[in-house]
């Protein structure tokens, strides 16, 4: 081996290491708090016979867990997802980097998004039965009920789950606001949002009040520089759905002022999901004696 050969070989080795370094660097998760916005196929992972599947997606060599806030909607195979997120702290979720994320399902069918990883023991879910959730007292009560039902089978038909409820508003009433955020292209709100809407509706029905509803649509800047914009009518669609619910719950149409902003907000790459929303205000009116 000549000196030149050695130099060349060393150079190749260094170049290879550099390339490898780039790859390693690219595959390392961004730091906690860093925005990560992309579109990808969700991948489902079977986490055991008595649990739901979990989902993750791959982007630039990294696996990211796809987990939404409660009732925001789970990922779906046969559809790509829009991920608007920041890298979160904590242990891996679904075998992937955790995100503080808002996951939206894109509407068109994509047959390429159809991967389920069979259960391999690497990621195990936690069964979600009533014996495994709630406080220790609630779990103990559930076990006691189960014991009684085993001894007296007729009890197995006596409902044990509580009625749904929401906190009734308590006067005196002041101006109250509600902001409802939506997945991309969707007018589906969460249970928690609707419970709060029910509470505000009670106020609007209880006192002279004006209700203002404004709908917004959004655009989402991806990490690769591309932008996804919602259909122009989404702002109107969201506002009108809320107004229809208010009407249905007894709010006089004359009390309601509805508006929508057709220009798409967001498009900054920083929590752009906040641009897709409705804002609602219940404003008590002075009472003339």
């Amino acid at each position: 081996m000549t000196a030149t050969d050695a130099t060349i070989q060393r150079s190749v080795l260094v170049a290879a290491l550099c390339v490898a370094g780039v790859v390693v660097s690219a595959s390392a998760a961004p730091p906690v708090g860093e925005p990560v916005n992309f579109v990808a196929c969700p991948i489902a992972r079977d986490t055991g016979p008595d649990t739901d599947v979990c989902f993750f997606a791959e982007y630039e060599g990294e696996r990211y867990a796809l987990r939404n806030p409660t009732d925001w909607g789970n990922p779906q195979l046969l559809h790509r997802v829009l991920v608007e997120a920041r890298v979160a702290d904590g242990a891996p979720v679904c075998g992937a980097t955790p995100l503080d994320a808002r996951i939206s399902i894109l509407p068109e069918v994509d047959a390429a998004c159809d991967t389920i990883i069979p259960f391999d023991g690497a990621v195990r879910g936690t069964p979600g039965g009533i014996f495994n959730r709630g406080t220790a007292e609630q779990r103990a009560a559930a076990r006691e009920l189960a014991r009684r039902a085993a001894a007296e089978p007729a009890l197995s038909l006596v409902p044990v789950m509580p009625e749904s409820s929401y906190p009734s508003p308590v006067p005196p009433f002041t101006t109250e606001t509600l902001t409802v955020y939506y997945p991309f292209g969707s007018d589906r709100a969460t249970d928690a949002d609707m419970l709060e809407l029910l509470r505000l509706t009670e106020i609007a029905n209880a006192i002279p009040a004006r209700v203002e509803v404004t709908g917004y649509r959004g655009a989402s800047r991806l990490s690769n520089g591309n932008t996804l914009s919602e259909r122009s009518e989404m702002a109107r669609q969201r506002a009108q759905k809320i107004v229809a619910i208010l009407h249905g719950l007894g709010v006089d149409p004359n009390q309601i002022e509805v508006d929508w902003v057709s220009t798409a907000g967001g498009n900054s790459g920083q929590d752009d999901w906040r641009s897709r929303r409705i804002e609602l205000r219940v404003i008590p009116l002075p009472v003339n004696d």
Partner: peptide, 19 residues
Amino acid sequence: HGVSPHEYFYPNDKSLLPK
């Protein structure tokens, strides 16, 4: 009974049931 968000709603898309 006992459904989310409330008995007046379709749980799936959170619109109101018919009357």
